[in-house]
Simulated assay, not measured.
Amino acid sequence: MTTEADGRAAPDDKSSRAANIFDVARLAGVSHQTVSRVLNDVPNVRPATRERVEQAIAQLRYSPSPAARALVTKRTRTIGMITPGSTEYGPTSTAMYFNVAARAARFSVDTMTLPESNAAAVRSSVEALLRQRVDAIVLVVTDIAVLDVVLSLDLNIPIVAVAASTRRSPAVVSIDQYRGARSAVRHLVELGHTQIFHLAGPPDAPDAIERIRGWKDELAGNRLDVVEALHGDWSARSGFDLGTRLTDIRPGTAVFAANDYMALGLVAALDARGLRVPDDVSIVGFDDVPEAEFLLPPLTTVRQDFAALGALIMQKLLIAIEEPENVAVSTPLATSFVVRRSTAALER
């Protein structure tokens, strides 16, 4: 140790720099490889050894840099996420809850937003994320053609698509839009309605496709007529515009709207025509957006559990990263049905 002119101890070289993995190893009395295993939650480390390493990390205030960790593990603990360039409730909720699940698993998320959701844009985004050496990729699919692109990709890292589809694949996770739609229509049938219209989402949107399929099958199962669905763009404005076009609607009919915002626009359109909800027309939405219970009337709707979806995506990615041979097909997550005051029994 050297001394300064006034007799005080000069700072040691080690105290003037950040601790590294070798400092932690020396203090804990283990190899730097063991420290690396503890940092990356590798299970084959004895509890007593793990405790010594963790104590050394705390004592030295060691914080491994992402670059250093990537060199040791060949991983960046970063997941690339590709989302549509929209503010729709489903995709934005999926992205938010996936980020929550990723942080809980100590992964960061690098998000790319696509102004246009098409095959060329998706391929370009995937290539950009690969250059950033992400450990896996998540893609929120809003165009059915994009799902085919995802399933055809041959990458050296896992990729998971969030998409409602009849196609089952280890690379796809979803919430069960089909059964959710059937539950909505079944509720209206049980209330005595025999003419049930559908305001659908965009014709190429996977969620909209599955909700149409559920609507049609539930009507067919109850031997009720199916009329042509009217397609909107998920917005309240499109729900209002479609509501003005539903010239066949009259007291006693019901409408299943593909999402809550379209249902909101429909309520306004019916009010402008002098029709009351639910006295004249019953309406069911889909999503259970936070505003749904505060609408006038409060909206009966199908609730999606986006927190569970985010956790499922992360769970699938962890298995795909650590144990790729154990990745299996996931069962679509169930929806739940929320009855409020926008639906009523049909008086005969």
Rank of each mutant, 00 (worst) to 15 (best):
G232M: 06
R237F: 00
R213W: 01
A200V: 07
R106V: 08
V150P: 02
A67M: 12
A254M: 05
I57Q: 08
R179P: 00
T49M: 12
M96G: 01
T335M: 02
Q59N: 04
L39W: 12
D217M: 02
I175A: 13
R26M: 13
A311R: 11
L312D: 07
S235Y: 10
A171I: 02
A258E: 03
L318C: 10
E116K: 11
V339W: 01
V38N: 08
R341F: 03
N44M: 10
T87Y: 05
A208W: 03
S169Q: 11
T253Y: 07
R186N: 12
A120I: 08
L139M: 15
E291C: 09
S183K: 14
Y261W: 10
Y97R: 06
G214L: 09
H193M: 04
E127Y: 09
T343Y: 09
N118K: 07
R237K: 13
S235Q: 13
S165N: 12
A200G: 10
P202Q: 15
V338L: 11
R106H: 12
A128I: 05
P11M: 11
A10E: 14
F197L: 13
F286E: 06
A104V: 02
E190V: 01
M262C: 04
R273L: 08
A258W: 00
G252L: 02
T87W: 02
A268P: 00
P324M: 05
T343I: 07
H187G: 09
P158S: 12
I321H: 11
V141C: 07
V141T: 01
D241W: 00
V100D: 07
T83A: 15
D148N: 15
A104W: 02
S125N: 06
V327H: 08
V140M: 01
G265H: 10
A328H: 13
D279A: 15
V189R: 03
T111A: 14
E228F: 01
P332W: 00
L60M: 04
R131M: 12
F98K: 01
L27S: 04
V226Y: 11
A56M: 02
I196D: 09
N20H: 07
Q195R: 15
V122F: 10
R250P: 03
T247H: 14
I57E: 07
P297W: 11
R106F: 11
F107S: 03
L153S: 12
S183E: 09
I209Y: 10
L312C: 02
V284D: 03
L130R: 15
A171W: 11
R123I: 09
V281T: 06
S183R: 14
D41R: 14
L242D: 08
P91R: 00
F337N: 03
F240C: 03
D143I: 00
D13R: 15
G201K: 04
V329M: 11
V226M: 08
A70Q: 13
V255R: 09
S282M: 06
F197S: 13
D6K: 15
L155D: 08
R348G: 14
P203Y: 08
T87G: 14
A344H: 12
E218H: 05
V126A: 06
L114P: 05
F256L: 06
A220E: 14
F22H: 15
R69H: 03
V289E: 04
I313E: 00
D143R: 11
T247M: 07
D135H: 07
A120R: 13
R250M: 05
T34K: 05
S65Y: 04
L246E: 06
F337P: 03
G192P: 10
T3H: 14
L27M: 14
